[in-house]
């Protein structure tokens, strides 16, 4: 298949994956990751369902109004900007705007991600100080599984960004690093979408 044909461009809009007979696996790798994301989405959907069915069971402990604060949650939502910076990184990759821009944008994304993690840790510690521990009630158990599962995903995403920055330094933009960046991007945007869900269904719904 000739690189850059019409059907090729349609397959990965916005990013040119040059496939050839010698390397037929790029499409499989990216498609496989999409399928994995579906499985991960089911996992989050189930955690949301658990939260929805146990969220009212405060068992005499604190409820959402007592423990949630809108400001830090909104701050964390601002860190969704990292999806934007990752988008610029992807464009830098697509239009070959130099390694400096790509690495810089990845570093910015990483910093925003770490900032998000730091703020969340701060929130969790604050909640625990008020006695809102996961052992108190089913509501808090469900909260402490749903939100920290997202936290864990973002942490792994940050590790992945570091690994990619190192691998880009070592071998530049080649077939392997390009598809890995593409998958990392999918992962990162997916986590932003999950955060929007958490912000809407957990924090906003709990406080409004």
């Amino acid at each position: 298949m000739s690189a850059g044909s019409a059907s090729e461009r349609r397959r990965h809009p916005g990013l040119n994956l040059h496939e050839s007979d010698a390397h037929p696996s790029d499409g499989e790798v990216v498609f496989g990751f999409w399928v994995f994301m579906m499985s991960d989405a089911v996992l989050f959907a189930l955690l949301f369902a658990v939260y929805a069915s146990l969220g009212a069971n405060t068992a005499g402990g604190p409820g959402p109004r007592d423990v949630f604060e809108l400001d830090p949650a909104a701050m964390e939502t601002l860190l969704l900007l990292s999806s934007f910076t990752f988008g610029i990184a992807s464009l830098a990759m697509k239009y070959r705007r130099g390694m400096a821009l790509l690495q810089g944008m990845l570093a910015t994304t990483l910093l925003l991600g770490l900032g998000f993690l730091g703020l969340e840790v701060h929130d969790f510690v604050g909640m625990e100080d008020t006695g809102a521990l996961p052992q108190v009630s089913a509501f808090l158990s469900a909260f402490y599984v749903l939100v920290p599962t997202h936290f864990l995903h973002v942490s792994l995403g940050c590790v992945w960004i570091v690994v990619m920055m190192v691998q880009l330094r070592m071998s530049g933009l080649d077939r392997i690093t390009r598809t890995r960046l593409l998958r990392l991007g999918l992962f990162w945007h997916f986590l932003d979408i999950v955060w929007v869900m958490i912000f809407s269904f957990v924090f906003l719904r709990g406080l409004l």
Partner: peptide
């Protein structure tokens, strides 16, 4: 299985008969 493990290892209340578990 993960939630059951959290109940058992960390004392959470997903499926326990008390603490709001179901």
């Amino acid at each position: 299985t993960a939630l059951l493990a959290l109940d058992r290892y960390l004392g959470m209340h997903f499926f326990t008969s008390g603490g709001g578990g179901n």
